[in-house]
Amino acid sequence: MVNQDILNRKGARKVTDIPTKVLDLLNLGKIETVNLTEWLAINHSQLIEHSFLDLGISNTITSIVVDEIQKQKKPSTMNSIKIVGETLCKQFKNSPQFPIVFENLKNHPSDSIRGYVPYLISLNDELKIEEKLDQAKPLVADHHFGVREVVWMALRPDIDKNLLQSIKILTLWSKNKDGNIRRFASESIRPRGVWCKHIEVLKENPELALPILDNLKSDSSKYVQDSVGNWLNDASKTKPEFVIYLCEKWLKESPTKETERIVKRARRTIEK
C-alpha cells in the first residue's frame, strides 16, 4: 500500500530532487508520474523488467524489448516509448495472446505502461485509420497528460496519410462532451506541432480544418482553447491572411471571453 503523502505529492522540479522512494515506485510501475520531470525520469528498462511478466509478456520478449531500448545512441523518453510499442507489435503480430496483453497494458495503473499502447495501435498495419482512432479513443480520454500526449504523437503520421478521412472523424470528436477528446481533434492535426513532423497540406491549406476549428472557437475548456490558439499560430507562419480573417470573423460571430482568449493566442506571432 502506497501512503497518501506519496500519492498526493506535487512532484519535484528537477530529476535529482525526486525522492528515491518515489522513483523506485515509478520504476516498479506502482504509481503514476505527476509532472513532466517525473515522466522524463522513468527508467523504461527497469519498468519493463519489473512489470511485463505480470502482464502476460514472457521473459524472452521482455529481454528483446530491453535490448532494443538500450541500443539507442541518443536515448529519449519518447523514442523509448515508441521502441517498446514497435517491438511488442513485432513480437505479438498474429499472436492469440495479443488481445490479452493489449488490455493488460491499456488498463495498467502506471501511465508510462499505458503510454506504450498508442504505438501498438498506430504501428498495426492491419488496422484502417478509423479503427486506429476508435481503439485509441479511451487513451485520448485518459486522465493522465503523458498518455494523452503520446497518443496524438503516435497517431499523427497515420492521420497525415489519411487526412481528409481523419478530419471527418475528428469533426465529430470536436463535439464530444469530453474536453480531452475535443483537444485531440485539434492537437493531432496542428500544421506544425511540437516534436513532430509538419503536416504540409495543412500548412498550405489550413481551411481544410475549418469543420473542426469552427466547432472549437468558443470552447469552455482552457486546455482546448490553448490547442486551438496554438493551431492557428502554427498556421499564421505560412498563411497569416487566413488566420487574420478567421480571427476577425470569430470575434464577430462569437464575442465571448473564450474566443478572445483563443484569438489572442492565435495572433501572437502575427502581432510580434
Rank of each mutant, 00 (worst) to 15 (best):
R156G: 01
K252D: 13
Y119L: 07
N215F: 07
R192V: 06
D125M: 10
P19A: 06
R13A: 12
Q91E: 11
V224D: 04
K73D: 12
I64C: 12
D24K: 14
S76C: 05
I113L: 14
I57L: 11
S51F: 00
I167N: 07
M153D: 12
I69K: 05
L164V: 12
D67F: 15
V117P: 00
P206D: 11
W231V: 05
Q4V: 13
T16W: 03
D142P: 06
I31R: 03
L208A: 07
Q4K: 15
Y223H: 09
N180I: 07
K217G: 02
I129R: 03
R156D: 04
T62G: 08
L155E: 02
Q4L: 14
P206M: 12
T20F: 14
T259G: 03
W39G: 02
D234S: 05
P99Q: 05
Q225K: 11
N94I: 02
P118F: 12
D219L: 01
N107M: 10
P118K: 10
K272N: 15
I113M: 11
S221Q: 09
I212P: 02
K82I: 13
D111F: 02
K137E: 10
H144L: 08
P96H: 03
R261K: 11
K128R: 11
R261Y: 09
N3Q: 10
H143S: 14
I18V: 02
L163T: 04
E126D: 13
A41S: 00
L213G: 00
D54P: 08
S76F: 04
D125H: 11
L23K: 06
H44A: 03
K14D: 00
W152D: 11
Q97V: 02
Q225A: 06
V140H: 07
T62M: 11
V194I: 11
N107R: 13
K21V: 10
W231A: 04
N233A: 15
L139T: 04
K222T: 15
E126W: 06
R182G: 05
A41I: 02
D158H: 03
D111M: 03
G229A: 13
L210Q: 06
P19W: 06
R261V: 05
R183Q: 04
I169Y: 02
I57P: 03
R156P: 02
I6N: 01
N176G: 04
N233Y: 12
E187R: 01
N59V: 13
E187Y: 08
K264F: 05
L172F: 09
F92A: 07
N8Q: 15
T60K: 12
S254I: 13
H198N: 15
V243F: 12
T16D: 14
I83N: 04
F145Q: 09
K137I: 02
I159P: 02
L25T: 01
K14P: 01
I81R: 03
